[in-house]
């Protein structure tokens, strides 16, 4: 008897802690249900789900970086620019490194070196933003706005605004590869990134510090810790994730261009807010991110199935959804605060 009561309480606690995630699951199931009823079962097909899984990772990896910056109480507007620059530079790098008619093992080796190169670029860009924020004291928004212009400016300057084509086939082959014929390799990359970030946030001291900075930066400093290093590391990881996303984009489109990521900034922020990340910092979980991304991608490919809804309405609906979710989050939080 005693035990049952306890477990009941635990369930309630668990629900309270993860209520946002439960809401997302319910919303996801509802939208899948409604969409499959409207489309007469076409939506729930395996092919459609495969498409969703294939399109989701670029967006997802980018949003993970945005989430880290938001949890630390800032915002990273430069993710898109970092993704573009990293994609362009690593495509140039890869094209010049790849010997003609190389064997498979050499191709894979070059790909691995390119990935390391790409991650390095992302890290450098992230450290730059982080340095401006922490050591110079520029507010995160202005700092990442400026660094975004600089990074994107370099990308445009290098390419003259045109796209880089004729990439080695290995990149596109890798991103199109499906494990056991079903699971796209990009989804696996996304899964690994999510697991790493979840581990970082929940199990490491760095993750703990990121949450603490977001909750109260003054307290953090007065407890004798160096917030500057943590902020730099946060933006570095955000930059690395953005660069991975950039490489995935290049693999997907089989080319690189300075305006590929342009349309991704707004959805990335939308996903974070949807996932329950508090824009003022200190709150947010990787699990919520996964659910929010799946939900958003489901909705977006659901819309794509209706030819008569123009692509433009998608913007209207996403904007309204973002506002609606914010209103919902704030009102429910205020109600909870009143109860306590």
């Amino acid at each position: 008897m005693e035990k049952m009561k306890l477990s009941k309480i635990n369930w309630k606690d668990y629900y309270n802690q993860n209520s946002n995630n439960f809401k997302l699951v319910v919303m996801f199931l509802l939208s899948v249900l409604i969409l499959s009823i409207i489309t007469g079962g076409r939506f729930a097909s395996g092919r459609q789900m495969g498409l969703i899984a294939y399109l989701l990772p670029e967006m997802g990896v980018l949003s993970l970086g945005m989430m880290l910056a938001m949890i630390s109480g800032g915002i990273d507007l430069s993710v898109v620019a970092v993704a573009d620059l990293a994609g362009i530079l690593s495509c140039i790098f890869m094209r010049s490194m790849m010997p003609a008619d190389a064997s498979l093992s050499i191709q894979i080796a070059v790909l691995l070196i390119t990935i390391i190169f790409c991650v390095l670029i992302g890290a450098v860009c992230g450290v730059f933003s982080g340095f401006l924020i922490s050591y110079i004291g520029i507010p995160a928004m202005v700092a990442t706005l400026g660094s975004s212009d600089i990074i994107l400016g370099i990308a445009i300057g290098i390419t003259n605004g045109s796209s880089i084509k004729d990439l080695p086939a290995i990149l596109n082959q890798t991103t199109n590869y499906r494990l056991f014929g079903i699971i796209p390799s990009t989804t696996i990359v996304f899964g690994i990134c999510t697991l790493l970030i979840a581990f970082l946030l929940n199990k490491t001291s760095l993750g703990f510090k990121i949450y603490m900075i977001g909750s109260n930066q003054t307290d953090f400093r007065f407890s004798g810790m160096d917030s500057r290093k943590t902020i730099i590391l946060t933006y570095m990881i955000s930059g690395i994730l953005a660069s991975v996303s950039g490489l995935l984009m290049c693999g997907h489109f089989n080319s690189a261009r300075s305006d590929f990521g342009k349309s991704y900034l707004m959805p990335a922020i939308l996903i974070c807010v949807l996932a329950g990340v508090n824009p003022s910092g200190g709150k947010g979980k990787a699990a919520g991110m996964v659910l929010a991304i799946i939900l958003l991608q489901t909705l977006s490919s659901g819309f794509a199935m209706f030819q008569n809804i123009s692509d433009y309405y998608k913007n209207l609906i996403w904007g309204l959804v973002l506002i609606f979710v914010m209103i919902l989050n704030v009102t429910s939080e205020r109600k909870r605060a009143k109860q306590i």
Partner: peptide, 17 residues
Amino acid sequence: LIITLGTCTAYLGFTQG
């Protein structure tokens, strides 16, 4: 920033759609 990002997407969608 986030509130107006939401409304700006809605306004853009309204104009286009």
